[in-house]
Design a protein around this nucleic acid. Structure first.
Length: 772
DNA sequence: GAGCACTGC
């Protein structure tokens, strides 16, 4: 890269030189009157005059800047300079073009105000609506003040989503006229696009959290900016609590919490009354309409509203929010049918309807960006497009050109019931904040309209202000393990913005204790510490770590990876039967885990024989995307295993115990997820200890019903199901998880009696052996 | 004999 910029006077080595030079200056002028200043390494660059006039490595526009005193005018002057302060290269024309638009952003007017606060305070809260430019500009304002090339301490800006981290980093690299991955980079799982010169790093919040497990003080960073904090992801919530702690230990660390307006006060008071800077957004007004009466069938009402907009409103695209795939496909069908009638009967314009949800293949997701259709005949009524989307269109994807939003007021939300230990998805009313966000989608390019399919009274009285943060709606086993690894000793007093229910914490501690990740005093064990190294749920991590004991760590590694990606089985509505038949080809009689493994092995065999794997997957009704991603996960997990000297091995395939070993190894992590059949010729199972009545999910390949199964997940839909199940033998439970299967801890019932009978059988057998 | 809001490590 350095070669590509021949003539550059600066390279990564220069950074080191300049700090060394500073030290030299410090020593040479040790007795000076301004001694205290000179001993401050942050100010050392002021005294580099002795250093052949070379400052910052290339004597440039940053000369006049002094760390933590930069004014907006000084920074602007440096930005206006012919030479790029960060590379020493001349600025390109494009740079100056972009600079002009940047200066027009609402946030630009408040640069000095921002800097004043930044200089004065360690923590600040920054509030800006969409279009304010905060995500791209604030980190650059910090850059010109923090001057990270002098301290070696990076500026980090976190995002809840990978795409955002990548695309914003690219944008800011363009704005600064640098190569992405050099001075500006990003870091997400599977991809670290940063280098020795990187000063500003965009990253996912989860990635920063993972980094901090090995750097409890986040010592690599001089300033950490948490963006989109109002989304309250699990990672953001934990980072906020950690940063609050670290701020006390590291006075040199600056923290900026950025959020959309609504919850600003809550953030301020959480961070010791941090000062607030608010910047207006740049959006167009959106007129809101409510229904006079509550709607009974919101899908029906939504379809009707879309058609009415199409019939009566001027040109402009429509965005309709529904809750899931099935609903969306159904609504699309109905709208399409009706529009055809409208065109025939009343000469309406054409309308293209696009579904949009997360599990849709990316190519199909892209189609939402197609232009609205042309009028049917020249001079005819204009066409428009209608996108029927899940919540994905609320935050992750923005579509320009939307003028009308139809909001029935529902979304699917994860809820966690600690009593039954079940996470499930439930169609629930959205929050006011969500409703506002949805309405905002209509005003991105010009004034718009939002049709809410509920009454104004319902909006005011029934909707909660904010969606509950994820931390209150999740199983926290993974989080608790992470916190322990992060060095949080006292979980009860860990200062989270919204502390979860004590019962949820207890459940997590209990589960981690059974998994031997925490000892009876709640201290992290060696196994727990190792498990936290893996980006996996604790049960999966423990299964993986234990797998060498069962001589099948290669296979368990594959299964773990397959269980950490979305379902690899493709089942299009148009070809369900063929898809099911194809799946049967991979079926293993002992269950779904082994069937997954078979499919993966077949995929790898196809790859090794040089076949077109994409085509192969298509023919076999397997998801190329998800299998490839499982392969990626596998490589990452494998590296972590190697680093931690966890042996990779297989039982020879010819060995009769090849599959038995794998089935036993599953139990090392999933011994708590076992169910026993209620009675012979029953289809109902009862889960161990929780005594939940469940059925095996119809997607299973298991045809002959086994008496005992281990399951990967519990799903609550129309019925209670266990999904991805494999046949096991109950005596393995007593052997592999003796603490959990201590029969004294079981309540009276069929499971306890069954296990007692087995214990006695084993005892008799051992007695006979002993007697011989 | 049924489903898969959305992210992230």
């Amino acid at each position: 890269m350095a070669d590509g910029r021949s003539g550059s006077k600066r390279s990564s080595a220069d950074i080191d030189n300049s700090t060394q030079d500073s030290k030299r200056v410090k020593m040479a002028k040790g007795g000076d009157a301004k001694d205290s200043d000179r001993l401050n390494p942050y100010l050392a660059h002021h005294y580099e005059d002795d250093n052949n006039g070379q400052k910052n490595g290339f004597g440039g526009p940053l000369d006049k800047l002094q760390r933590h005193t930069t004014t907006a005018a000084q920074a602007a002057a440096a930005e206006d300079s012919d030479l790029n302060p960060w590379t020493g290269q001349p600025h390109s024309q494009r740079y100056f073009d972009i600079l002009k638009t940047r200066r027009n952003l609402p946030v630009s007017k408040q640069r000095q105000e921002f800097l004043n606060m930044y200089h004065e305070k360690q923590i600040l809260v920054f509030v800006g609506e969409t279009g304010s430019g905060k995500t791209t500009q604030i980190p650059q304002y910090v850059l010109y003040d923090e001057l990270p090339h002098l301290t070696g301490k990076l500026i980090a800006c976190t995002q809840p989503r990978r795409v955002a981290a990548m695309s914003v980093a690219q944008r800011v690299a363009n704005e600064l006229d640098v190569e992405l991955g050099e001075e500006v980079g990003y870091s997400i799982r599977f991809e670290n696009k940063t280098g020795p010169k990187t000063l500003l790093k965009y990253m996912t919040d989860g990635q920063l959290l993972r980094e901090s497990m090995h750097d409890h003080d986040m010592s690599r960073y001089g300033c950490i900016i948490l963006d989109e904090a109002h989304e309250r992801t699990l990672a953001t919530d934990i980072l906020m609590a950690l940063l609050k702690q670290i701020a006390g230990r590291r006075k040199d660390l600056k923290i900026i919490v950025m959020s959309a307006t609504l919850d600003a006060q809550k953030f301020q008071s959480y961070f010791y009354d941090a000062p607030l800077l608010a910047v207006p957004g740049r959006t167009h007004p959106v007129e809101i309409f409510y229904t006079p009466e509550p709607e009974r069938d919101y899908v029906e009402a939504a379809v009707r509203t879309v058609l009415q907009i199409h019939a009566t409103e001027p040109e402009g695209d429509i965005l309709l929010f529904l809750t899931g795939e099935e609903e969306i496909e159904d609504a699309c069908r109905r709208i399409n049918l009706e529009v055809d009638d409208m065109i025939r009967e009343s000469d309406a314009g054409p309308m293209k309807v696009y579904p949009l949800y997360g599990t849709l293949p990316p190519a199909q997701q892209q189609r939402i960006f197609d232009k609205a259709p042309e009028p049917i005949r020249p001079g005819g009524r204009p066409g428009r497009k209608c996108i029927v989307a899940t919540n994905i269109a609320e935050t992750s994807l923005t579509i320009d050109g939307i003028v009308y939003v139809v909001d029935p007021g529902f979304s699917k939300q994860k809820i966690y019931n600690p009593r039954s230990r079940v996470e499930s998805l439930l169609v629930s009313p959205i929050s006011k904040a969500s409703a506002q966000q949805r309405a905002g989608r209509a005003g991105r390019t010009r004034p718009g309209k939002c049709f809410r399919l509920y009454t104004e009274k319902a909006f005011k009285k029934e909707l909660i202000e904010q969606t509950y943060p994820e931390i209150l709606r999740s199983n926290l086993s993974n989080t608790v393990l992470e916190l322990k690894k992060l060095g949080v000793e006292d979980l009860v007093h860990f200062d989270l913005m919204d502390p979860p229910a004590p019962e949820t914490m207890m459940r997590a501690l209990e589960e981690l204790n059974y998994l031997a990740c925490l000892d009876d005093d709640g201290e992290l064990t060696k196994l727990g510490s190792l498990a936290s190294e893996f980006p996996l749920d604790p049960a999966l991590a423990v299964m993986l770590i234990s797998s060498p004991e069962f001589y099948c760590s290669n296979e368990i590694l594959s299964i773990t990876s397959l269980l950490s990606v979305p379902q690899i089985w493709v089942r299009p509505n148009s070809a369900r039967k063929r898809a099911d038949e194809m799946k049967q080809m991979f079926a293993h009689p002992d269950g779904d885990h082994l069937t997954l493994l078979n499919a993966y092995h077949a995929f790898k065999a196809a790859e090794q024989s040089g076949q077109d794997t994409k085509k192969w997957c298509h023919e076999h009704f397997l998801s190329f995307r998800h299998l490839t991603s499982a392969d990626n996960v596998r490589a990452q997990l494998r590296r972590i295993m190697e680093t931690n000297e966890i042996e990779l091995m297989s039982t020879p395939f010819q060995d009769k115990d090849y599959y038995t070993n794998i089935r036993r190894a599953l139990l090392a992590g999933f011994f708590m997820q076992v169910a026993m059949r209620e009675s012979s010729n029953s289809k109902i199972y009862k889960t161990v200890k929780d005594d939940q009545l469940v059925m095996i999910h119809p997607s299973t390949v298991v045809s002959s019903p086994y008496d005992w199964v281990v399951y990967n997940e519990f799903v609550l839909t129309t019925k209670q199901y266990v999904r991805t199940v494999t046949n096991i033998r109950p005596e393995w439970l007593l052997e592999i998880a003796p603490v959990y299967y201590d029969l004294d801890t079981f309540e009276k019932g069929e499971i306890k009696s069954a296990l007692t009978r087995i214990t006695e059988k084993i005892r008799r057998r051992q007695a006979m052996k002993g007697g011989r």
